[in-house]
């Protein structure tokens, strides 16, 4: 499982402050903590919601450079704006990167997908379009089809594409967990070389004991073939759910990872 650490996201007020104050030590500490906890990529989202596009581009460049100067863990450049994405990718200077994200809408397909080719980056493709998040698995799959077509046109190999089949809270529609899982299964069937990813914690929004739901959903998604997760790697329960889920679907030869994680715990 590719774990993408989600903590550096400026929509959270504590992160927003770090970005606005250019608090390099605090930013780096957040990145290092996530890497130490098992994140394979660190997500970097500096969209504070205030200031101009240029401000966000500056922030992205600062954040990327600050982290990569001290940490080798690859970064996931996260923005809704292609210009901010490209600023981040450029600042990486050829180091491995991931782009978060494009939707199946024209602007993204025309401007974000080519960035994945130009910077040889992994690409997160959200299975949604201009009209929002589709309610059914079939419609989400259609969004994925559009992204696949754009990737083929721009010579982005599908093995570099992580489809996010989107997680909606079950507190408002109890069937939403199934729609996400069904989409995931269908994408793995139709595009076996493509990868899948989920930002998983939204599933439990509005419910008590969220980590129970998150852990259960994680394991169902693993069974459906999940390849990546945008989560808080410091959430030990969720990380344990990954380890125990993957060993159960035979992705952990001789239970190595599971045993390494837990053999000394009682």
């Amino acid at each position: 499982m590719l774990v993408i650490g989600e903590k550096i996201n400026a929509t959270r007020s504590s992160i927003k402050e770090i970005i606005q104050n250019r608090d390099a030590a605090a930013l780096l500490q957040l990145a290092e903590k996530q890497a130490a906890a098992g994140a394979g990529y660190i997500d970097v989202n500096v969209g504070t919601g205030v200031g101009t596009l240029e401000d966000e581009m500056d922030s992205m460049q600062w954040a990327v450079r600050t982290i990569q100067d001290s940490l080798d863990t690859p970064l996931c450049i996260d923005s809704a704006d292609p210009k901010v994405l490209e600023t981040g990718l450029k600042a990486r200077d050829g180091r491995p990167s991931m782009i978060n994200s494009t939707k199946a809408e024209q602007k993204g397909l025309d401007e974000v997908v080519p960035l994945a080719q130009k910077y040889e980056a992994l690409l997160v493709g959200l299975t949604m379009d201009e009209s929002g998040i589709p309610k059914t698995a079939d419609d989400r799959l259609r969004a994925a089809d559009k992204i696949v077509a754009a990737c083929e046109a721009h010579r982005v190999p599908l093995k570099n594409v992580y489809f996010d089949t989107l997680v909606m809270p079950i507190s408002t529609d109890v069937k939403q967990g199934l729609v996400t899982l069904e989409t995931l299964t269908q994408i793995k069937r139709k595009y076996p070389e493509a990868k899948t990813v989920l930002g998983l914690s939204n599933i439990s929004y509005g419910l008590p004991q969220r980590s129970r739901i998150n852990a259960a959903f994680m394991q169902m998604a693993i069974y459906a073939g999940l390849d990546g997760a945008i989560i808080d790697p410091l959430d030990t329960e969720l990380m344990a759910a990954i380890t125990s889920g993957e060993v159960l679907v035979g992705k952990d030869r001789h239970c190595r990872k599971y045993m390494r994680a837990f053999r000394h715990r009682t």
């Binding site: 030869r253 001789h254 239970c255 190595r256 045993m259």
Partner: peptide
């Protein structure tokens, strides 16, 4: 070593 460790070595 537990059973999987031994199996890995036996393999």
């Amino acid at each position: 070593y537990l059973i999987p460790d031994m199996l890995a070595s036996a393999e």
